[in-house]
Simulated scan of single mutants.
Amino acid sequence: MSKVQKITPFFWFNDNAEQAMEFYLSVFENSKKLNVNYYGAGGPGPEGSVMVAAFELEGQQFLALNGGPRFQFTEAISFAVNCDTQGEIDELWEKLSAGGEPGQCGWLKDQFGLSWQIVPSILPELMSDPDPAVPGRVMQELMQMAKLDIARLQQAAAGESL
């Protein structure tokens, strides 16, 4: 018997929860569909339409509900994806921002309006350097970027001209 995840992000979609799940499954290699439940005759949604879709991305379980147009996503909630290589940043940025909206400092909105942060795994190390000038230079460089560039951030940390 598998243990139930203690905290599960639960997304509210108008009527495209299954489409969103399929999109996220296509973006992340380590992903899988877990379960899809459908509205019955007595449900608030059309009978036979998707009510809740459960899926897993990189070991994290998510639920997506077709709840109608009442609620929309905001930037107040986002998902940070730590990337070890520039190739991973580039790939996720391209896939997640397709049909969406690129933002600043590694943030983007996907085609469903959900906010993501695509960040290099090395960023916390760069930002916690004991020399206060290093995080300052890194932050100054980061603020000029949409998609983050590991090499540029490392050059800024080292105090090298860009």
Results as ranks from 00 to 15, higher is better:
residue 64 A to D: 01
residue 73 F to Q: 05
residue 21 M to A: 11
residue 87 G to S: 09
residue 93 W to P: 00
residue 32 K to T: 07
residue 22 E to D: 13
residue 82 N to L: 10
residue 77 I to K: 00
residue 75 E to W: 15
residue 76 A to Y: 10
residue 57 L to I: 15
residue 72 Q to W: 12
residue 32 K to I: 10
residue 14 N to M: 05
residue 52 V to F: 02
residue 39 Y to P: 01
residue 61 Q to G: 01
residue 73 F to R: 09
residue 55 F to H: 02
residue 92 L to A: 06
residue 59 G to Y: 12
residue 44 P to Y: 12
residue 81 V to I: 11
residue 13 F to L: 05
residue 24 Y to C: 06
residue 23 F to P: 11
residue 43 G to H: 04
residue 56 E to Y: 05
residue 30 N to C: 03
residue 61 Q to P: 01
residue 69 P to D: 07
residue 57 L to W: 00
residue 16 N to Q: 10
residue 90 D to A: 09
residue 44 P to E: 15
residue 55 F to M: 10
residue 91 E to I: 11
residue 74 T to N: 12
residue 87 G to H: 14
residue 88 E to W: 05
residue 66 N to M: 04
residue 37 N to Y: 12
residue 46 P to R: 14
residue 73 F to W: 08
residue 25 L to V: 13
residue 47 E to M: 11
residue 24 Y to T: 12
residue 41 A to E: 15
residue 29 E to K: 04
residue 87 G to P: 10
residue 83 C to S: 06
residue 46 P to Y: 13
residue 39 Y to R: 04
residue 48 G to D: 10
residue 61 Q to T: 13
residue 19 Q to A: 13
residue 68 G to T: 13
residue 43 G to C: 04
residue 80 A to M: 10
residue 59 G to A: 04
residue 34 L to N: 14
residue 80 A to S: 12
residue 90 D to R: 11
residue 14 N to I: 01
residue 74 T to Y: 09
residue 88 E to L: 05
residue 35 N to H: 08
residue 45 G to Q: 11
residue 92 L to F: 07
residue 61 Q to E: 14
residue 46 P to K: 15
residue 76 A to C: 14
residue 29 E to H: 13
residue 34 L to V: 13
residue 75 E to G: 10
residue 30 N to P: 01
residue 58 E to S: 14
residue 34 L to Q: 13
residue 43 G to W: 12
residue 50 V to G: 00
residue 38 Y to D: 07
residue 24 Y to K: 12
residue 49 S to G: 07
residue 72 Q to E: 15
residue 25 L to T: 04
